[in-house]
Amino acid sequence: MIIAERKPLSEILGMIQGMHRILVLGCRGCVAVCSSGGDKEVAVLASALRLGAVKAGSDMSFGVQTLVRQCDPEYLAPLAEMAKGYDAVISTACGVGVNFIADRCPGVRVLPGLNTTFYGANLSSGEWREMCAGCGSCVLHLTGGLCPVARCAKGLSNGPCGGSVGGRCEINPETACVWHRIHDKLTDLGEADRLMDIMPIKDWRTAGHGGPRKRIREELLP
């Protein structure tokens, strides 16, 4: 799931300074699940912005809407009508939603309400952790399913660095050393030999360093 978090209110208020009518647009996709951009969060954001406007003595007014997803054209279609009369739309979708609105809805000024942070999992209520970097060439079969690209500070491919102590990362002791865990996991699985293989230098083109990525499934194309 894509994880995001609300931008600071002062930053959002800065974006809309001088405007009058603002639509706060939620998304019931990932951001609703990670409690950053769904119906509930959109309502709170609108209330908070309204209070900010009251404090600043401005006459801004805020509308609130939520779409099922902002990353599919069919759900985005009503926005063209919805956005009429508004100076701007604050999207609380991930960056994908904001981009998609910008791409698909000419005449709509779209502003990001969230910072899109990472691909993560919900450890418990209110806690999310990064698990994948979307590098485009998965090596998880070699590492016991634990990703060294996303979860090692240096993205090492060949074992823990000299800063690994007691299973913790030297960067942040709250973070586990993923290579220590890979070592333990592979040992448990009886695959410790894999740790003696030298992983070759990675091809980063699939990670986006080869340009914006796209995926085509011929049979699904209209």
Partner: peptide
């Protein structure tokens, strides 16, 4: 509701 309190202020 959080919004209720914020709106009360507004």
């Amino acid at each position: 509701e959080v919004t209720a309190v914020l709106d009360a202020f507004s």
